[in-house]
Simulated scan of single mutants.
Amino acid sequence: MKLYYAPGACSLSPHIALLEAGLPYDLVKVDLRAKKLENGDDFLKVNPKGQVPALVTDDGELITEGPVIVQRIADKVAAKNLAPARDSAERYKLLEWLTYINSELHKNIGPMFNPMLSDEAKGVFKDRATSKFKYVDSQLAGHDYLMGKQFTVADGYLYVMLRWADGMKFDLSGLNNLLAYKDRVAARPKVQQALVKEGLVKAA
């Protein structure tokens, strides 16, 4: 498989999932501004959407959209329990979390990376996202991970949003469940491995 990524982008979520799953893959870095690969090839010929993540399977199938990609990865290694069984009540809960992270966190924090956005507009997005983080904090009470004791692909996605929030100087003080959760996910060896592979942290 090939994962097309940009360092620290939302493609970090399926990158973490691939490592947690123990699946072999190749990383292909994308310049999102130029829509070019490192070798100069046109990324739009790989993914006409021009966005990461994009996953190309061993049989050549292109899969886009992070929440879909991570479920595909999890389903390839069901024994790893990175996603509950298909059609189970727990699977729909995972879908609920992936959708919430995608629509309420990702879509509010993402626009803040736009340098053309005014500080006032960024403040609106930050306030919205912070209120959503408060909800997540309430749901993490007594839980190690979003689904309870088991790490799932939704946790990798939420962790990326928390990294973005750090970069944007969000004030998450007082959200003790969420802050402890962030540290717990960050301490996972495969999460650290993904960060090192993307050049986001130095190898220990």
Rank of each mutant, 00 (worst) to 15 (best):
S103Y: 08
L140R: 05
F113T: 02
V77C: 11
V77P: 11
D127R: 13
G123C: 07
L98I: 12
V77I: 13
K107E: 03
K132L: 00
S131G: 08
R91M: 05
A83P: 11
L98V: 12
N102F: 11
D119S: 13
K132Q: 15
G142N: 05
M116K: 15
G123E: 08
A83M: 08
L105P: 00
K107W: 11
F113I: 02
V124K: 15
L95K: 12
M112G: 04
P115G: 10
R86D: 07
T130S: 11
R91G: 05
P115R: 09
D144S: 15
A129H: 05
V124G: 04
T99F: 14
M112C: 06
D119V: 03
V124L: 11
K132G: 02
A85L: 13
T99A: 15
K107T: 08
S118T: 15
A121P: 00
Y100T: 00
I101V: 15
K126H: 04
A129E: 01
D119T: 08
L98G: 08
L94C: 10
D119A: 14
F125L: 13
F113E: 04
P111E: 02
M112L: 09
K122S: 04
H143S: 07
D87T: 10
D87R: 14
P84I: 10
K93D: 10
L117M: 15
L94S: 08
K126D: 04
G142I: 06
T130P: 01
R86S: 12
V77E: 08
N114Y: 02
A78F: 03
E120D: 13
E120P: 02
P111I: 00
K80H: 05
F125A: 10
H143L: 04
T130L: 12
K107G: 01
L117I: 11
K93T: 12
K134Y: 00
M116L: 13
L105A: 04
K80D: 06
Q139H: 08
G123L: 03
G142M: 05
S131E: 14
L98E: 03
M116N: 12
A79L: 07
E96A: 12
K134N: 00
N81P: 00
D127S: 14
E90K: 14
R128M: 13
W97M: 04
S131P: 05
R128A: 12
N102D: 12
V77T: 14
L117E: 10
D137R: 00
L105R: 08
L82P: 05
P84G: 02
A141S: 14
V77K: 08
F125P: 00
I101Y: 03
P84K: 06
V77H: 09
S103V: 10
T130D: 01
A78K: 14
I101D: 09
F113D: 03
L105E: 04
T130W: 00
Y135G: 01
L117A: 10
W97A: 03
A129L: 08
G142R: 09
L140H: 05
I109D: 05
R91L: 09
M112P: 10
E104A: 06
K126L: 09
K126M: 05
N81Y: 01
G110F: 12
K134C: 03
D119L: 13
K126F: 00
G142C: 06
F133A: 01
A141V: 10
K134D: 00
P111W: 07
G123F: 05
K93N: 09
T99K: 09
Y92Q: 06
A85Q: 12
S88A: 01
